[in-house]
Structures are given as C-alpha cells and as structure tokens.
Simulated assay, not measured.
Amino acid sequence: MPERQIGERLKALRSELNKTQEEIAKSVGLSRAQYSHFENNRNEPDSGTLVKLANFYQVSTDYLLGNTVDKNGHTPSWATDKDKKDLKKFLEDNANSMTYGGEGLTDEEQKQVRRILEGFFWDKQKDKHK
C-alpha cells in the first residue's frame, strides 16, 4: 500500500476542532485506542471507517488518503487529462444504477460510494504516476 498521510491529517483536523481523541472516537463509533492508532499511523482505517471519518470532518476520503491537498477532493494536480476523463465517464455511466442487493441507494449513500470509488481510483492512478 502506498505511503499515507492519514495520521497527520487526522491530527490536524482534530486540532482544528480543538477536540480530544476520545471525543472524536466516540462521535464516529470507535474506541479511543483505535482512533489513536490511526493518528499515529499504526493502523489504517478500513473503507467504512474512512468514510465515517471523512464525513465527520467534512473532507473527502481522497484528502485523508493523501491523494489531494484539497479537503473537498478535487482532482490531484498530478492527474492527467486521461485520468480525469476515465473517472468522470465511469461515475456518470454508473451514477443512477448503484444498488446493493438489488435495492437502490439513497443520495447520501451514493455520495459515500462515489467518495470511496474516487479514493480507490486516485490511489491506483497515483501509483502509476510514481
């Protein structure tokens, strides 16, 4: 897995809110120890926890993963035009057909899926550009 900046970004975001690790952990349904391990880069959050943290801090998963310096997940500066078009086409082609077990997703669930997909996509592209 590529080097991450998750811990540093989580610390900075928590500091901006002037909150303790305990307060953040409780808000997202984690133990303080679990959250501490993320901040100290001992463990990485799974995709579901990553989304919870991104939603709590109101940033993109891409930002937490270190794929962009923009908290809102705008396209990384190193992305090529082809990268941008590939992701845009995929998301447009699949935006209204997202289901889970045959059941449609709510708008919020679709946003979460999109954030996760974008994070995975930019991770893969970032590795190619190294």
Rank of each mutant, 00 (worst) to 15 (best):
T75Y: 03
T75G: 01
T75H: 10
T75K: 03
T75M: 10
T75W: 09
P76D: 01
P76M: 11
S77R: 07
W78C: 09
W78Q: 11
W78F: 15
W78S: 10
W78M: 15
W78P: 03
W78K: 11
A79H: 06
A79C: 13
A79T: 09
T80H: 08
T80F: 10
T80K: 04
T80Q: 09
D81W: 14
K82V: 13
D83N: 10
D83I: 04
D83R: 07
D83L: 13
D83W: 05
K84W: 05
K84S: 06
K84Y: 10
K85M: 07
K85V: 10
K85C: 03
K85G: 01
D86A: 15
L87S: 04
L87M: 14
L87K: 13
K88S: 07
F90N: 04
F90K: 04
F90A: 08
L91G: 00
L91W: 02
L91K: 02
L91E: 03
E92C: 09
E92T: 06
E92V: 06
D93N: 15
D93T: 03
D93R: 09
D93A: 12
N94W: 01
N94T: 09
N94C: 14
N94F: 06
A95Q: 11
N96L: 03
N96E: 06
N96Y: 10
N96T: 04
M98P: 02
M98H: 06
M98R: 05
M98Y: 04
T99Q: 15
T99L: 08
T99Y: 09
T99P: 03
Y100P: 01
Y100G: 14
Y100L: 13
Y100W: 07
Y100S: 15
G101F: 04
G101C: 06
G101N: 13
G101E: 13
G101I: 11
G102I: 03
G102C: 08
G102W: 08
E103I: 15
G104D: 11
G104P: 01
L105E: 02
L105T: 00
L105A: 02
T106V: 07
T106A: 10
T106K: 07
D107S: 12
E109D: 12
E109Q: 15
Q110W: 09
Q110I: 06
K111D: 07
K111N: 11
K111H: 15
K111L: 07
Q112N: 15
V113K: 04
V113I: 10
R114G: 03
R114V: 00
R114D: 00
R114L: 03
R114K: 10
R115S: 06
R115T: 01
R115H: 05
R115E: 05
R115F: 09
R115A: 08
R115C: 01
I116Y: 06
I116N: 02
L117F: 10
L117R: 03
L117G: 03
L117D: 01
E118L: 04
E118V: 02
E118Q: 14
E118C: 07
E118M: 14
G119K: 02
G119Y: 01
G119T: 04
F120K: 12
F120I: 11
F120T: 01
F120C: 05
F121Q: 02
F121C: 08
F121I: 02
W122F: 10
W122T: 00
D123H: 14
D123G: 15
K124S: 14
K124G: 05
K124E: 00
K124W: 14
K124P: 05
K124D: 04
Q125K: 11
Q125S: 10
Q125N: 06
K126Y: 08
K126F: 09
D127Y: 14
